[in-house]
């Protein structure tokens, strides 16, 4: 069977995908306008319909692969190595104060 890059039966077997795109954008911490949400939601629907083809293959008894090569317990010697200087680490921060990264308030004021 040849791989069909542009058309053919494989792309006609699409499934309907339902996405709450505003919820997903909130989870991903990206503030999008209504118009952007609508456009990206439509695009993701198309991509996911294609991606959902993975659901067609029988995978009973197949183990998932999270890492391509068999590799377990990668240890290194427990040695102290000099860390990056605090000043250097802070030098790229948008805002820092007294040796710390500075962020907006994380708690509501009383």
């Amino acid at each position: 069977m040849a791989f069909r890059v542009r058309s053919g039966p494989i792309y006609n077997r699409r499934m309907a995908i339902d996405i709450d795109i505003a919820y997903v954008a909130r989870l991903a911490r990206i503030e999008l306008s209504e118009e952007e949400l609508e456009r990206i939601g439509r695009q993701l629907g198309g991509i996911l319909e294609h991606a959902a083809l993975v659901q067609e293959l029988p995978t009973d008894g197949i183990e998932p692969t999270s890492h391509p090569l068999p590799m377990v317990n990668s240890f290194r010697p427990d040695q102290v190595i000099p860390p990056i200087e605090r000043e250097t680490a802070l030098s790229q921060a948008p805002e820092s104060e007294e040796g710390y990264f500075r962020v907006p308030p994380t708690l509501e004021a009383e």
Binding site: E31, P94, P104
Partner: peptide, 21 residues
Amino acid sequence: VRYGLRVEGATVEEMTARTRA
């Protein structure tokens, strides 16, 4: 927070979401 762009926001979440957008 640590590097790159920041767009200000009233809370950390708002700042992060605006920065990433």
